[in-house]
Amino acid sequence: MLAGLAALVLCTALSLALGTRPIPLGTVLDALSGRITGGDADVVTGLRVPRTVIGLAVGAALGVAGAVAQGVTRNALAAPTTLGINAGASLAVVVAIFTLKLSQPVEYVWFALAGAAGAAVLAYSMARRSGDLDPVRLALGGTVLTAVLTAWTSAVMLASRRTLDEARFWLAGSIGGRSLDVLYPVLPLLLLGLVLALLVSPALNALALGDETAQSLGVPVARIRVLGGLAVILLAGAAVAVAGPIAFIGLAAPHLLRPFLGNDHRWLVPGCMIGGPVLLLAADVLGRLVVRPSEIEVGIVTAFLGAPLLAVLARKVAR
């Protein structure tokens, strides 16, 4: 955990200092303290501070959502992306842009949450088998649901040039070019999701033993699944509403932390609050540097790096 905090401080500093216009850390500190104004100070306080704060919040939300989703479903491949939650939020936002003529990310919030909730409920209902949750059916159902919802999203965007123009930047997944005004409306929901995740984390250890064993240990399985699912919906929906559908952070963070923190969710969930932002900020900084003076959106970077990880995890789970 201490090493993770050190990595988080480093990534935060790099996010404030690096980009199309590199700024020395000393200048960054002077800008944050108000000792200098104009020029580099405006870049730091006006652009990079909001970008970094949003990265911290979104990364924590996605990392914790992935850990809770994997614990609730007993599926190592569960994440907001693989369960169709991101795709559901994306479809809801695109439909809202098409029908209601929305134009600002701050207006997308409730539609993204509604879409995330609908997709999560649908994926869960598809995975029910004889009253129990089948992890294999959940993974397959989530994959199919993601493909279907993504196809519908593309169809709506192709039907309207305005919708395409409004949604394509958001759908790429980015924490740049956004003010903190986008984060404020979802911040209470994000905090509520984190609190719920911490509350259910001890019970997730019992769920790993199976529903019958967990019930025999006195764990209210149905209630824990509802609370855990609600935490995932709030966290993933809030993250998608702010930054768009960013893939693989929720899948990667828990798996990368388990060799260091073990499988105890009482450590893993708080650890993902640190590991998620580290991964997201590192990917964002990488996207700023590889094609300077242009940038690659962080959602594209995480998808490019996460696809091999998903293949490795799928092979591991199959073995």
Rank of each mutant, 00 (worst) to 15 (best):
S103A: 14
V242M: 03
L164E: 09
L289I: 14
W152C: 15
V182F: 11
M126D: 03
A243M: 11
P245N: 07
P308R: 03
G275T: 02
T302M: 14
V53C: 02
T302S: 13
A241M: 10
L234T: 14
G46R: 07
A61N: 00
G71Y: 01
S130E: 10
S33Y: 12
L83E: 03
G250P: 02
P80M: 11
A311Y: 15
R129S: 15
R266D: 08
L310W: 09
V49K: 02
L29F: 06
L310K: 12
L196H: 00
L305Y: 06
A96Q: 00
L189D: 06
G71P: 02
V94E: 00
N86K: 01
V43H: 02
M157G: 05
S103K: 05
M1V: 14
T99S: 11
V182E: 05
A41S: 07
V136H: 09
A172S: 15
S201G: 13
R74H: 05
R51V: 01
P270I: 01
S174V: 12
T153G: 07
G244M: 10
L217S: 12
V186R: 02
S179K: 12
K101G: 10
A89E: 01
N75R: 04
R178N: 09
E107S: 13
A208P: 11
L309V: 11
L149W: 00
V44M: 03
L235F: 03
W110I: 05
V200M: 05
A17W: 02
A6T: 14
K316V: 13
D211A: 08
T37A: 15
A155C: 11
T37N: 09
V278S: 05
V298S: 08
R48Y: 09
